[in-house]
Amino acid sequence: MSVLVCFHAHPDDEVFTTGGVMRMAADAGHRVVVVTATDGALGEFPDGLLDEYETLAQRRSRELEASTDALGANRVVSLHYPDSGMVGTPENENPEAFCNVDVEKAAERLAEVLREENADVLTIYDPNGGYGHPDHIQVHHVGVRAAELAGTPFVYEASTNRDHMKMLMQANPEWTEEAQPPDIESFGLPADQLTTAVDVSSVISSKRAAMYAHATQVGDFGPFLEMPTEQLAAAFGTEWFRRRNAPEGLSETALPL
């Protein structure tokens, strides 16, 4: 049995880029651990969704539990840093927000989990955090350092294949502006920088179930929830990674689990 640890910024981030590899790893008998940096308390959500006296952080924690159950996680850890908010918002200036925390101290907290689990593989984000969110960028920095501290042998930067995304957008002009990244040229990584493409179409139903679990995040998942399975698999049936310190020319179809 190997151990896969997926480090994410907010509850719901686990679905898009690692939901499939999590489910496939769990189905193969491996241990799957999800670590979230923040509580997601600054996310947008539909009016009237929360119960009386319920906070968004409380609801998103329960959603994360349901999502990770669908994806086969054995353990979920939250580091409980304050959400930094979207880039350019006043919350970015909060000294306690995750984007501003000391990388060494945060990395040691993640490294403690990696050591406890004797992790074989850690997933983080690419240096731009996929799309420039301050918390996602910090996940990259903290994750890289934590793997160094813990001696985790394989580190994979979860990303999006920018060229694949462009192709999908051209083929699906009916997709709304809300469903498209704001600046495609800064979104994810180009195909020639990715080392690993994992076909997760066989577990696309689990990814859809995880999307449904995050009811507060309908703004993120809404355009995709009712897609026919074939379309959903085209959009999310491959998960893309760049393996750090990979041999030149590496082209993988699975994580080393």
Rank of each mutant, 00 (worst) to 15 (best):
K166H: 05
A158E: 03
A70N: 10
A191P: 03
Y131C: 07
T17P: 04
E117N: 00
V21W: 01
V87W: 15
V155R: 02
G40M: 00
R244S: 08
R242M: 07
E65G: 06
S202W: 13
V76Y: 08
G129P: 02
V203D: 07
Y131D: 06
R162I: 01
Q193L: 15
G43T: 02
E104S: 13
E177F: 02
T196I: 11
E174A: 14
A73K: 00
K105L: 14
G19N: 04
A25E: 04
Q58K: 02
P90D: 11
L232S: 11
A106T: 09
Q58G: 10
E112I: 09
R31V: 11
H30N: 09
A213W: 07
V76P: 04
E185N: 14
N92L: 12
E93C: 12
E52D: 14
D183L: 13
D39Y: 03
A41H: 07
R162C: 01
I137H: 03
N118L: 11
A97I: 03
P11R: 01
S84W: 04
D12C: 01
F45L: 12
L42V: 05
T160D: 15
L49N: 01
A37M: 06
M167Q: 15
R208W: 10
A106E: 05
L42W: 04
E239D: 06
P95F: 11
P153R: 08
L168A: 03
D192F: 13
E177N: 05
E54I: 08
E239H: 08
T238M: 11
V144W: 07
E116M: 13
H8I: 11
R31L: 10
S201T: 11
E148C: 09
S205V: 14
D69P: 02
L168I: 04
G219E: 09
D27W: 08
N161D: 15
S186N: 15
G129C: 07
A215K: 13
A210D: 06
S205R: 13
T253C: 10
V87C: 14
D47L: 05
G219C: 03
P228G: 00
H30C: 03
A9F: 02
H140F: 14
D220Q: 15
